[in-house]
């Protein structure tokens, strides 16, 4: 007599509630496709385990992600070895799996909205990056201030703003910080204040 969550899922998925799952933003089909007759506990034992840090508040709780052979994360729970959270998690941390690829609201393509348009359209990265660079350069070149009213050298541009973010890694933060300075931006802020 073996009970597996697999059998639970395949049953609920096949008789209607699968639609509900997708409508609610949790698409479990990816998981189902790899359903073996193993219990989830067994699958975790065979999965690749990676540690990460929670992406919500600043306590810095440790998490363990389990990734299957196809490269999909199928479980995320607290890291019992982590000295701060000792495996525990709050509602947000415990639900972090809902932020992975299974979340149907996740953006998967570059979206572009043209002036006056009432809809998004999908674009590829190359076109988008080139267009963004064009806009940045045109704005910067047009509005670059080499000297302020007092005649002091200031090398800045005041017509481009940058906001964010406190929810990326340190290396990303530092790179953004210096990229903004290299462009001459001064309107620079992030969520430290809100």
């Amino acid at each position: 007599m073996k009970i597996t969550r697999r059998s639970f899922l395949s049953v609920s998925g096949s008789i209607g509630s699968g639609i509900a799952l997708t409508a609610l933003g949790i698409d479990l089909t990816a998981l189902k496709a790899h359903a073996a007759e193993l219990s989830k506990t067994d699958r975790i034992r065979r999965a690749k385990q990676s540690t990460t840090i929670c992406c919500y508040c600043s306590v810095g709780c440790g998490l363990i992600c389990s990734t299957d052979m196809t490269g999909k994360i199928f479980n995320i729970e607290g890291d019992p070895d982590h000295p701060i959270n000792e495996g525990s998690l709050c509602a947000k941390g415990a639900g972090i799996f809902g932020l992975t690829e299974v979340n149907e609201h996740r953006l998967r393509k570059v979206l572009y909205r043209a002036p006056k348009s009432d809809k998004w359209e999908e674009k590829d990265w190359e076109w988008s990056l080139n267009r963004i660079a064009r806009l940045v350069k045109d704005t910067r070149d047009q509005d670059f201030i080499t000297h302020n009213e007092k005649g002091e050298l200031v090398n800045r541009v005041e017509t481009i703003g940058h906001y964010g973010t406190s929810n990326i890694g340190n290396e990303e933060c530092w790179s953004l910080s210096i990229a903004c300075r290299a462009m001459g931006l001064v309107n620079i802020d992030h969520q430290a204040r809100v």
Partner: peptide, 19 residues
């Protein structure tokens, strides 16, 4: 009442949310 348990249960047991 952080509800870590409530959500952890849903996560582990793969229980969908209701509206």
């Amino acid at each position: 009442a952080c509800r870590g348990c409530q959500i952890a249960c849903k996560q582990w047991n793969e229980l969908p949310a209701s509206r």
